[in-house]
Amino acid sequence: MRILFITGGSPATVFALAPLASAARLAGHRVLVASPEDMTPYVTGTGLPAVSVTDATMRRFMFEDRAGRPLGIPADPQERIRFNGEGFGRLAAATLPALRALCADWGPELVVGGSLCYAAPLFAHELGVPWVRHTWDLGEPPEMDAGAASELAAELAAAGLDALPVPRLWVDICPPGLRAPELAPGPRQSMRFVPYNLRRPMEPWMLRPAGRPRVCVTAGSRVAGQDEVAELTELARTVEGLDGELVVAAPQELAAQLGRAVPGVRAGWFALDSLLATCDLIVHHGGGQTAMTALHAGVPQLLVPTIPKMLPPCRRIADRGAGLVLPEGDRSTTAIAAAAAELLADPAYRARAAEVAAEIAAQPGPARVVAELEALAGEANGRPAR
């Protein structure tokens, strides 16, 4: 069976789909991953075949309209969520021509798209093949879909649709106990979250406990601009005052700069699942893959979300007792340091995080979910799918 996976415009959207795509490939299926050009190195870095479907970046789709005019971020948090959905709608519209051209040489029998990959339902509808929607993390707010549908009104009308199609199946990597109370329509198949990342050689210190609390600070895999670097540096300095060992996970090219700004810190590109095995706390921006990796490791989290859509999933983690969340307006250095100290001192947070890790481990693995994809495609084709 030929399966097309479609990612978004950030490394996290690649890593989220890699376990299922890899399992399908190992099961003997022909797998291809379509992504923006700047994401193809992340796809190939996971060992999967990649094809570029646009040379534009996610930043451009988010902050420019289709005519290239700049767009401002809405001040209202709910409008900001819809605004984000519109950006993903523009990404979908830009990738459809390349996907259609690809089909001339490589027609998929099944399309798997990430949570906000709106090209997937449109392209699958055109081909008449099943579409599977794959969550990236703890879920996305429904207003994202509304924003994308608005942006894609012309494409939906051209396809004879008055709304985004409902997927034949959701593959959901969010542990059931942390899912939003209201889920988007479509049947769900739980799948165990498996951390994926680009790798660099392990160092001996990563394999052993530090002898004192080890705290990881990160702002995700795409920290680049000076403002983002300054925010990460300030966060690291705040946590540095704790009686522990500080590790800053960031792009490798920033390691030297972070080392000068926070003397003695270990900084660079660390695969989080390997690093967190010996960490006692992670302080981060609320990114979905980062949060899921920490949950998988059973490590308490101090969540400092930077985008409104991240706040509800972060609050669910805090409500479960596996971490604390600091909303905007309550992020002074004193508040961050106090919250981090509380998480390190109270073993209940580690216990609750371990409960979530056990819940993740109990979910069906990617290989079992591949069998569900085979059944879905076989039903559509009227024959066994191999």
Results as ranks from 00 to 15, higher is better:
P305Q: 09
D330A: 15
G321T: 13
M292N: 13
R315M: 11
D319L: 07
A294S: 13
A291F: 01
V325S: 02
M310C: 05
L324F: 03
I317T: 04
V325T: 15
L295P: 08
T306R: 13
L303R: 07
L324I: 14
L326W: 12
E328W: 14
T306F: 10
A291L: 12
A318I: 13
A322D: 08
L326E: 05
T293Y: 13
P312Y: 01
G329F: 13
I307C: 05
R316D: 01
A291Q: 11
P313S: 03
H284A: 05
H285Q: 14
D319P: 04
T306Q: 15
L311R: 11
L324T: 12
P300Y: 03
G329A: 09
P312N: 00
A294I: 06
A294M: 04
A322V: 07
A318M: 08
L302R: 04
L324V: 15
G287S: 07
M292F: 06
P327G: 06
A318S: 15
V325Y: 09
I317G: 03
R320I: 00
G329H: 11
R331L: 07
P327A: 02
A322N: 11
R320M: 01
G288N: 05
P308V: 03
P305M: 08
P313R: 04
L311V: 15
V299L: 02
P327Q: 01
M292R: 09
K309I: 00
L324C: 11
L302S: 06
I307R: 14
G288E: 03
G321Y: 12
G298K: 05
E328F: 14
G286D: 04
H296F: 14
V299P: 12
P327D: 11
G287M: 02
Q301D: 09
L326N: 12
Q301H: 10
M292T: 10
H284S: 07
V299A: 02
P313E: 01
R331S: 09
E328H: 14
R320T: 01
L303V: 03
P313F: 04
G286S: 10
A291P: 00
G287V: 05
A322Q: 09
V299D: 02
A318T: 14
P312W: 00
H284Y: 06
G321L: 10
G298M: 06
T293H: 11
G298C: 10
G286K: 07
M292I: 04
P300Q: 00
H296E: 01
R331E: 05
Q301M: 11
G287R: 08
T306P: 00
